[in-house]
Computed example of a mutant assay.
Amino acid sequence: MRIGVLTAGGDCPGLNAVIRSVVHRAVTNFGDEVVGFEDGYAGLLEGRFRTLDLDGVSGILARGGTILGSSRLQRDRLREACENAQDMAREFGIDVLIPIGGEGTLTAARMLSDSGGLPVVGVPKTIDNDISGTDRTFGFDTAVGVATEAMDRLKTTAESHQRVMVVEVMGRHAGWIALESGMAAGAHGICLPERPFDPADLVAMVEERFARGKKFAVICVAEGAHPAEGTMDYGHGAIDKFGHERFQGIGTALAFELERRLGKEAKPVILGHIQRGGTPTAYDRVLATRFGWHAVEAAHRGEFGRMTALRGTEIEMVPLADATAELKTVPKDRMDEAESVF
């Protein structure tokens, strides 16, 4: 069998671990040939690929990013890929494609699979943990650890200067990183996309803390969080060419608003892409490795149009449609568990 593999969308700790696992399982156990398409679906459309052997994936298990590169594909080019899927499979000699990516990547994978021109087995990844059908995605554990450590560090400097620190973490439409890192770091307020917040509640919380002799506060806010209507001047951003909203910087806006209302210094800290980079945690390396192993197994069983998924402690194969039907957002019961820190 000749297996094609690609990584698309935002990079994520653990991508290289999946690539390594696919190559090891395919080459060592089945005698397959593996080729890697460069820069995601763009490489597939443009025929840019290279052979991946055991030497080619040596030493990449703990490496961040992706050795294949990544990119996002505009919708018209995605349609082009679907229309030419059969020709590309024949031209490159690909028996199955293993795309590794998030909601957009897996939507493209489903479209390719539905076109009937190219067998597909998907592997879900996202630091946001927002893909339906799987309990956990690799990269999330690493991102939560980075955000937690950042807030742990910020507490000491915030206390030294009697400041309010507003820490913005990733999470466009799902607040899993903000929820879990905020809880782990003991943040004094958490703002999620799933629940509009009122700045007045945060002001009251900070004032109550200072009245008790506490001289600092840390508030964790997801990039997609937004204030309740009429509570704060904050608008919606434009839509980019990939269909994503350009957020206006809620961390900075909220810090400015709190400083204005409190009369105390409030500083925004935008963690940004630092959450995506660097060495994956042990948990993410193991999960990514298991996903790669099971993707190859599924390819040999002919389980196309499906993706790997963590269900409890087991890896199962679920339809790609399950991953793209809706985003997995933070449910009310999880917010209720953390209510004391909202």
Rank of each mutant, 00 (worst) to 15 (best):
P99G: 09
V96Y: 10
D95M: 08
G145I: 01
T142F: 02
M88C: 08
V96W: 01
D135A: 02
G122T: 05
S113K: 06
G104W: 00
I131S: 10
D95F: 04
V123K: 03
T157V: 14
E168P: 06
D128L: 02
F92I: 05
T156Q: 08
G139V: 01
D95A: 14
D141T: 04
R153D: 06
V144T: 11
A89H: 11
E168A: 06
A147H: 00
N129M: 07
L112W: 10
R90G: 11
V164N: 14
N84Q: 15
T126Q: 03
F138P: 06
G101I: 07
A109L: 02
V120G: 02
E168S: 10
E83T: 14
T126S: 15
V146Q: 02
N129E: 09
K155W: 14
I131H: 02
D141W: 03
V120Y: 00
V144Q: 02
E168N: 01
R153W: 05
D95V: 08
V123N: 01
T142P: 00
D87V: 14
E149N: 12
V96T: 14
V96H: 09
E83Y: 13
L112G: 01
S115R: 13
T107N: 13
D114G: 05
G139C: 06
V123L: 01
F140C: 03
L118Q: 08
V164L: 12
D87I: 14
M151H: 10
